[in-house]
Amino acid sequence: MMRAAPAAARAGCDGVGEHGKIMNEAASETREHRLKRLQMRSWRRGTKEMDMILGPYSDAEIAKLSSDALDAYESLLSENDQDLYQWVSGQVPMPSEHTEILERIRLYHRIW
Results as ranks from 00 to 15, higher is better:
residue 95 P to Y: 06
residue 71 D to R: 10
residue 76 L to K: 04
residue 57 Y to C: 04
residue 72 A to P: 04
residue 98 H to W: 01
residue 5 A to T: 10
residue 17 G to E: 02
residue 74 E to L: 00
residue 49 E to Y: 05
residue 19 H to G: 03
residue 106 R to W: 04
residue 14 D to T: 10
residue 2 M to T: 14
residue 10 R to M: 13
residue 80 N to C: 11
residue 49 E to V: 11
residue 82 Q to M: 15
residue 110 R to V: 06
residue 18 E to Q: 10
residue 32 E to R: 13
residue 109 H to M: 06
residue 50 M to G: 01
residue 59 D to A: 14
residue 49 E to K: 10
residue 77 L to N: 04
residue 65 L to N: 01
residue 42 S to W: 00
residue 45 R to Y: 01
residue 87 W to D: 00
residue 62 I to N: 01
residue 43 W to V: 02
residue 49 E to I: 09
residue 64 K to I: 03
residue 105 I to Q: 03
residue 42 S to N: 00
residue 81 D to P: 03
residue 71 D to A: 14
residue 45 R to V: 02
residue 1 M to Q: 12
residue 22 I to Y: 03
residue 36 K to V: 11
residue 68 D to F: 07
residue 107 L to M: 09
residue 7 A to I: 11
residue 107 L to E: 11
residue 23 M to L: 15
residue 53 I to T: 11
residue 20 G to T: 00
residue 6 P to M: 07
residue 85 Y to F: 14
residue 67 S to V: 13
residue 49 E to P: 04
residue 8 A to Y: 08
residue 10 R to T: 12
residue 79 E to F: 09
residue 108 Y to S: 00
residue 10 R to P: 06
residue 18 E to C: 09
residue 9 A to C: 10
residue 108 Y to N: 04
residue 105 I to F: 00
residue 105 I to A: 02
residue 16 V to E: 00
residue 68 D to S: 14
residue 88 V to W: 03
residue 108 Y to K: 02
residue 38 L to P: 01
residue 89 S to A: 14
residue 110 R to C: 07
residue 85 Y to A: 10
residue 53 I to V: 13
residue 110 R to Y: 05
residue 77 L to V: 07
residue 57 Y to G: 00
residue 36 K to F: 09
residue 94 M to P: 03
residue 89 S to K: 14
residue 97 E to Y: 07
residue 5 A to L: 15
residue 2 M to C: 12
residue 48 K to A: 10
residue 72 A to W: 01
residue 73 Y to V: 01
residue 81 D to I: 09
residue 95 P to E: 11
residue 5 A to C: 11
residue 34 R to F: 01
residue 73 Y to N: 02
residue 65 L to E: 08
residue 17 G to F: 00
residue 102 L to K: 02
residue 102 L to Y: 03
residue 40 M to Q: 12
residue 97 E to W: 08
residue 31 R to T: 12
residue 31 R to D: 06
residue 5 A to D: 11
residue 96 S to D: 12
residue 87 W to M: 08
residue 10 R to W: 08
residue 47 T to K: 07
residue 99 T to V: 13
residue 62 I to S: 05
residue 58 S to F: 05
residue 57 Y to W: 10
residue 14 D to I: 05
residue 64 K to D: 09
